[in-house]
Amino acid sequence: MSLFRKLPGVVLAEFESTGSLLHAAEKMSEAGYEKYDCHSPFPIHGMDQAMRLKRSPMGYIIGTMGTIGMIGMIALTYWTNIYGYQMVISGKEYFSWQAFIPVIFAITILLSAFGAFFGMLALNKLPQLFNPIFGSDLFAKVTDDGFFVSVECDDPMYDEAKVKSFLESIGGKNVEVVKGE
């Protein structure tokens, strides 16, 4: 059971190869489906265009986090050296920024990495340990050598019979309905 919303059931169809999955993705987006996904054991080149996905906003998340890290660390080194604990070292100015670049750089990188990692998890809604799609025995192949298209039942164009026949018409095999909660 999901904590936040009911997870929709899906119609699942298996495809033979990366080529046929890519082809299917093009047909799906041409037909106007929105809530569908193409599952594969590894990312497939050109799939984003075939599914007409928008560019991932990851770059903005990472950029923001990195900037926060950089500004934060500049502020910390400035504050500690001007107000926190003044030290004269080699007769240099209190805020001798050149010497602070290594730590500023490190924290910029650190927060960017957090942005990349947690941003990816958030956008993918992970961790999500349960999903109705795992109810399909066939779907276990997706992490091995299976290629699948899934259509969620809350897609505006959803009609079980139509979706099934459409998936078959574009080359899907073993079409299966996986019930939601």
Binding site: C38, P41, M58, G66, G119, L123, N124, L126, L129
Partner: peptide, 24 residues
């Protein structure tokens, strides 16, 4: 595994995260 489903909507963000982690 965090409930990974291998959907391209996941791979899309995943690949970019991986690329950026490599880049930094």
């Amino acid at each position: 595994a965090l409930g990974w489903r291998g959907g391209n909507r996941q791979w899309q963000h995943y690949e970019l995260a991986y690329l950026v982690l490599a880049g930094i």
